[in-house]
Design a protein around this nucleic acid. Structure first.
Lengths: 213, 213
DNA sequence: CAGAGTTTGTGCCAATTTTCACAAAGTATA
DNA sequence: TATACTTTGTGAAAATTGGCACAAACTCTG
């Protein structure tokens, strides 16, 4: 419960724990130990305890963690007690898939707008969202109070879109374009480069052969 | 150039360098320094040099790196001079988007098959791929020599599909299902949990406020 | 309620990864 | 060719991260 910087890995894992705990609450399981939670998430018991330790003391010695209490506490800390408005820029195959992805809303992430510069894609309706032209972006982002942007445009357009979003005060960007974005320090970018993920895996294949041959 | 273990982060970044270098070659730029390459990829010059150092000595003191030479060398090392066969399991919105994602083929990753357990999705045609029933998976994986699997099924079905793939000798798995997969040590899994990526960003929003308020 | 058994929280250590910093090796110029 | 620059490659230092191990805190049982 010190105010040290929390490692990025810890933050990511905390959401895994929360997902598991939420499941346990549904199953009417009231208590779980770090060892069991680790088992279910393929992590070590020490890792579980250390990660939780960054945020407070939630456990009871000899008994473990109360699932409902832990769930409530983590949701509060992680800002999951409120919803975040998200906009998707780029309505190609990937953008469309994101618009219809059911996992977001379940977890408090509301996609409230979608944009594309291609007039053939403008007007497409997906669930309750209609794709709007890029020109509308500034107005809509401000009106709908969007704080997270998803970039699903080709690499060449990515920086331009990013600059627009940053200027409008969007604080975080999830970037699917295979390019490195430049943003000011107070904006957080998370890159998800699908090709690169696969490439990294393929490197493992090349190397595994060498290792076991 | 020693045979020490290469950090995972280095492997991932090497593909970023390669992407950038490829761009430079196209632009007819023949030489680049670690400082410039770092600038373009938002990484430090020292990081660039150290990363490249794991694979060999490619630079010339006082001059920098020859882009064409570096490109050729890295492609060889990374196994990018050959193509890998990839199968997608799950043909929902995300799976469909992956099937039509142009970035893969460009980088030597050939999606050669797609499967779904839902009979309504079987038979769907996407580019040159037809969605096949899950029962066909064992036969097709072996016949087409698939070495990388992509899991884009709901969380509950993910482990079952994984077990099938592992049994068939698939060495790497890219997992989009929001669940932890159990695999033997010689199989490499990379998780891409889109909701979790967004959640991690939203945590940053919560925390940033505290930091600057 | 005493004693045996569990499980947490955390200081400390080990391993990994990044950054620093500088000698060595090159280029460019006159 | 000599001198001034530039840039690499890499040991060594610093920072980060994960794992161990154990005292302290609690539960459970008879």
């Amino acid at each position: 419960m010190n105010n040290k910087k929390v490692p990025e890995g810890t933050i990511s894992r905390i959401f895994i724990y929360l997902r598991e705990i939420t499941e346990l609450v549904k199953l009417n399981i009231h208590t779980i130990s770090s060892a069991e939670l680790g088992e279910r998430t393929n992590l070590s018991d020490a890792q579980v305890r250390k990660d939780l330790g960054y945020f407070g003391q939630f456990g009871v010695s000899g008994a473990g963690y109360n699932t409902q209490e832990l769930k409530t506490a983590l949701e509060k800390i992680l800002g999951k007690d409120r919803a975040w408005n998200v906009a998707v820029v780029g309505a190609g195959h990937l953008g469309s898939a994101l618009l219809t992805y059911p996992g977001f809303k379940e977890r408090g992430l509301d996609i409230v707008a979608a944009f594309d510069s291609d007039s053939r894609k403008v007007g497409k309706q997906m669930k309750e969202i209609t794709v709007q032209p890029l020109e509308e972006l500034p107005r809509v982002i401000q009106q709908k109070k969007v704080s997270i942007g998803i970039i699903a445009v080709p690499a060449k357009e990515a920086q331009g879109v990013t600059d627009m979003l940053v200027k409008l005060g969007v604080g975080c960007i999830l970037n699917f374009a295979p390019t490195s974005l430049n943003v000011p320090d107070n904006v957080k970018v998370k890159d998800v480069d699908l090709s690169r993920e696969l490439e990294t895996l393929s490197y493992f294949l090349v190397n595994k052969k060498a290792q076991y041959a």
